[in-house]
């Protein structure tokens, strides 16, 4: 960019020089009235010899022509149509300047425009990429947000399910403990009842057996003892002992 500006500055500088140079001939073409009169006088003298001769000889037509030529020197130039030499110098300067501009300035401008276009296109591409990237990031963020929301919902749902499960476990445990307490109470009652029955049965047995023992011992005389011994021997002999 800086090189392009430098080239453009150089081109305009060169054009300025050429304009100055081209103005010199134009200034030379723009002669003064005095010089014009001098030139006309000189030209008339070259053509007719001496002007005095013309007056003396009353060559009126020539004097009139000379007078018209002098009048031309004092005539104002046309405000619209330039002088021919100006057109030539101006045209030549224009052509030179146009050629120079075509040769140096236009490529530079074209390159600058191309660079500018490329830069704008690159900026547009970068902007498009940034936009695409922003869109992608936005989509990612939205996806992450959606995922986070879904995850949060899942966590809440899991927590609720876990709470329900814990509550169910506590309820089940409480029911189980109640059932165990009832079972233990029933077992204790049954045990106490069994113990009472057993104790009662033992007391009854002690009474009954004690009575039987007293009856037996009171009847165990020598004959009974011998009879018992004989019965024992018979049982052993019979293999029933």
């Amino acid at each position: 960019m800086t090189a392009t500006i430098r080239r453009l500055a150089g081109a305009f500088g060169l054009v300025g020089v050429l304009v100055v140079l081209g103005a010199v001939p134009a200034a030379a073409v723009g002669e003064t009235t005095g010089s014009c009169v001098i030139e006309e006088v000189g030209r008339a003298e070259d053509k007719y010899g001496s002007l005095d001769v013309l007056e003396e000889t009353h060559q009126e037509d020539k004097l009139k022509k000379f007078g018209e030529d002098l009048e031309k020197c004092v005539e104002a130039p046309s405000p619209i149509i330039p002088e021919l030499d100006e057109i030539i110098w101006g045209g030549a300067a224009f052509l030179i300047l146009f050629g120079f501009m075509w040769w140096k300035g236009f490529p530079a401008v074209q390159r600058a425009m191309q660079a500018r276009s490329e830069k704008i296109a690159a900026d547009l591409d970068a902007a498009e990429q940034a936009k695409t990237q922003a869109t992608t990031v936005l989509a990612d963020h939205e996806a992450q947000l959606a995922g986070a929301k879904a995850e949060a919902a899942q966590i809440i749902e899991d927590a609720r399910a876990q709470a329900d499960l814990v509550a169910a476990e506590i309820q089940a445990r409480a029911n189980e403990e109640v059932a165990q307490m009832r079972a233990r109470a029933a077992a204790d009652i049954e045990s106490a009842r069994s113990q009472a029955v057993s104790d009662l049965r033992g007391v009854v047995a002690d009474i009954a057996v004690g009575a039987a023992e007293r009856v037996i011992q009171s009847n165990l005389d020598v004959d009974t003892q011998r009879a018992l011994v004989d019965a024992y021997i018979d049982e052993v002999a019979g293999g029933n002992a």
């Binding site: 057993s198 049965r201 033992g202 009854v204 047995a205 002690d206 009954a208 057996v209 039987a212 023992e213 037996i216 165990l220 018992l228 019965a231 024992y232 049982e235 052993v236 002992a241």
Partner: peptide, 15 residues
């Protein structure tokens, strides 16, 4: 085959 043994059996049966 003692009476003591029979009494013990009787007591066990009652128990």
């Amino acid at each position: 085959g003692s009476v003591r043994h029979r009494q013990s059996q009787l007591r066990e049966n009652f128990g």
